[in-house]
């Protein structure tokens, strides 16, 4: 079993937190992982991309080859589209529907939405609304992780452990808020 994930978004949107939670979950299940991150200049409001690879077997490359990603998980709707060439046949694209408009030529959201309608397997989710509904407004990135959880090669319980690990230093309240967000995200995508 393997899952190759492209994580996409804009610098500052909490991609590294998603990656860290998945990383801890992977460790908890004693799986192999490689996780290529973006640090430095692009973190300043630019497009950011992380390659996350999980497998039962040793992994060679830190980068996912084109056409091999099982999942594109994006916290921003336009950013996911940038990495479509990485998507495998019948792979899933799970995206937050709320645009992050820090550029003047941001395309219309209708046009973006149309692209998702063309994909065989896409989840379009208003993560910010769901985060607000479960009283965890800051946890929209974890809502996204929950929404994508069905497409990962490890159990939901392990993912909960991962989220706990990431937030435990911030106290039980923060951990609980994020677990709620994770569950709400999962609930949303399981209805699709």
């Amino acid at each position: 079993m393997k899952t190759d994930i492209i994580l996409a978004g804009v610098g500052g949107q909490g991609i590294l937190t998603i990656a860290a939670a998945i990383g801890f979950a992977t460790l908890y299940e004693h799986k192999f992982s490689k996780q290529s991150e973006v640090h430095g200049m692009s973190q300043r409001g630019g497009a950011v991309l992380s390659h996350l690879r999980i497998s039962d077997k040793p992994i060679a490359s830190d980068l996912i080859p084109l056409g091999k990603a099982d999942l594109i998980l994006s916290v921003e709707p336009m950013e996911a589209l940038r990495y479509l060439p990485f998507l495998t046949k019948n792979g899933w694209v799970v995206t937050n529907s709320v645009p992050f408009e820090n550029i003047s030529d941001y395309p219309s959201i209708g046009k973006i939405r149309e692209e998702y309608d063309k994909l065989p397997n896409a989840v379009w989710i208003d993560a910010e609304q769901i985060a607000k509904e479960c009283q965890s407004p800051k946890a929209s990135n974890i809502v996204m992780l929950g929404a994508a959880s069905e497409y990962l090669c490890f159990s939901f319980d392990s993912l909960k452990v991962g989220v706990e690990q990431v937030f435990k230093r911030k106290g039980t309240e923060v951990v609980e808020a994020n677990i709620l967000a994770l569950e709400a995200g999962r609930k949303f995508s399981s209805k699709i």
């Binding site: 300043r44 056409g67 046009k111």
Partner: peptide
Amino acid sequence: TINGPAVPEFLANRPPSMC
């Protein structure tokens, strides 16, 4: 090499910017 779906042409670049 196998490519997934093409990147839509209307996509805008998002360079880094000051906070």
